[in-house]
Amino acid sequence: MRVFLFLLMTALSMASRLAGAADDADSSYRLGNGYPVSDSGFRIGGYATAQVGARHAAPKHFEISDLSLFLTWDNGSRLRFFSELEVGDALSASEQQSLGIQDAHFEFERGYFDALVNNNLTVRVGKFLTPVGQWNVIHAAPLVWTSSRPVVTENLFSTHVSGLMLHGSVSLAERQLEYSVYGDASDSIDPHRSKEPFENAIGAHLRYFLDDTLQLGVSFAHFALNEPLPVRYYLSGLDVAWVYRKFELSSEIVYRAGDHAFSENNWQGFVQGVLPVPMSQHWFAVGRYEFFEQTLAQTGQVGLLGLAYRPLPPLIWKLEYQLGTHNELLAPDGVSASFAVLF
């Protein structure tokens, strides 16, 4: 295996050097941009996250929680490919367990083809992230400000779709409206099932750019989850993000209703603010409030305070503390710290 990896890296390196034409300043590796393989259109990259945590009523733990590998192919034609393979908990240790690979598992995160029909329409086929809100579609640790993700971004729907999506953007009142309309058939076609996958689903997300700093999104979905009860859910959501220089304010709210007599209807949401620490280029303070109605428990609420250090855009160190009520199951109290890099 080591020999194979060595040969692969050597071959990629040589191919890249050979392709390094004098006019092209793009052929070398840059952190956070991936590794272009010659002029083949292939690019290899990914991200990694290491995390330590001390949560209420749980052993202190350390883990390399994500080790993701991206493979992109785009040769300038109307077809392009993207895939993400992930080793979850590649290395872990806790108070009750020594350092090892005992929890390591493989995940087929994403894999899809995009076919560009015209400037306003692209057809995607494969497995991709569910476009509900904003967090889920950019959830990678180097791209978000906290080690933990808000409950609303993953609790009420499957985070992945396996099927077909039509997406693109159109101009509306001189501003961009981005749309995604998808159909899922996970039950039939997903070879490596996600955590709590859809049985099947249809849905849409619209995002409107009110100006360069403010965007507003709405989500809709109608789906069945892969669970014992034959319930169909209706989901609707609202998301907003305002980014001005290094200040950010974002929020997502989702409401889910089921059509079964025993299913509960749930509201969940969060509001998060990020501001640069005065006199510093790279330090940021993060605050978040979230609430989540949950089955068989009272509504949970959590407040989070955090600090992030970002020496370069693809690198981030995070430290955070969260405290709440009725949150033991979904977002327990405690401290966590992490390091993430996009490579």
């Binding site: 004098a22 006019d23 300043a25 941009n33 991206f70 392009r80 993207f82 855009p313 996009l342």
Partner: peptide, 29 residues
Amino acid sequence: EEQEDYWNIQYFNGITPPKVMASEEAIVR
């Protein structure tokens, strides 16, 4: 450099930034 956050997100979705050329003459060619 203020656009790097945008490009990091695009990279996560398989979209790379514009190609970089070494000089104006390289661009014209």
